[in-house]
Design a protein around this nucleic acid. Structure first.
Lengths: 135, 135
DNA sequence: GTTTTAAATGCAACATTGATGCAAATGTAA
DNA sequence: TTACATTTGCATCAATGTTGCATTTAAAAC
């Protein structure tokens, strides 16, 4: 599906920044940071515009945010195959890449009586196949 | 165990900042942010000293860091009862408190062939019992 | 108790991410 | 083409992370 159509479906105005972000994360085979996305875009946008675009796209569940660390945030496209379901993320300590893992039915993590779970954020840290081969 | 003893065991110099941080997180029944810890301390320390103290205590596995969001980082004491084992964290969207959950044997999350897992960070977001009662 | 020295601290400076107010620009529908 | 609500760019600020360097301090040696 084209970026424009995705925006239309979610009743969002078609702006070049939003379109660009969607196109970039759609073509990526891994999650991308704000700067990685920025560098892949032709247009030049203010950081605030970027920030607000990410927020809007996230709220419409077009993309989702992965917080690896307080200084490392990445974004990935929500797609009907791997996403819309709870899934974990893999972060490579070597090359710092982030990938969405296939959704798996997780045994419920027991939370205390009276607590109400809404979302679960899982980041598995380690070494990816490519980096492991290099050693 | 006293803060001083903990520092000694790990071959760390006894400084009032480190001692203070350990005492504060030890007495807390939840994870605390840099500012929350700072406000509970009598002494006044430079942010850099704080930052380096946290780093040192974390490296010695005296405390561990929980990254809820890029702007919300909390610290909790590692203790032999609930910690030293992989455990999840609960973040309350209402009161913003963070608690370490009891360690549970998690069914392994399947990661791709050739990948090597080192750590798993889990943050469950929702509403805690106290906040749920208020509604 | 002094001296010595390696380690910790305070300060300055800077990077990344998140957030808001406001005027100017723009998308979209009338 | 016009009108209007939305989006953008800019300024400004907060929390977190990081490093270099001079000064201070913990702790060992004397």
């Amino acid at each position: 599906m084209k970026a424009v159509d995705i925006l239309n479906i979610h009743n969002l105005k078609r702006t070049s920044c939003r379109e660009g972000i969607i196109d970039v994360v759609k073509d990526a085979n891994q999650a991308l940071s704000e700067n990685e996305i920025k560098n892949k875009l032709s247009g030049n946008y203010d950081r605030t515009t970027f920030y607000r675009s990410f927020k809007t796209l996230e709220e419409s569940k077009i993309i989702h945010k992965i917080v690896v660390d307080s200084q490392l945030v990445k974004y990935a496209l929500d797609n009907s195959i791997t996403h819309k379901k709870e899934h974990a993320h893999f972060y490579c300590n070597q090359c710092h890449s982030v990938k969405c893992l296939e959704p798996v039915l997780l045994e419920e993590i027991k939370i205390p009586e009276g607590y109400q779970k809404e979302e679960t954020e899982i980041v598995i840290k380690g070494t990816c196949a490519i980096c492991k081969n290099k050693t």
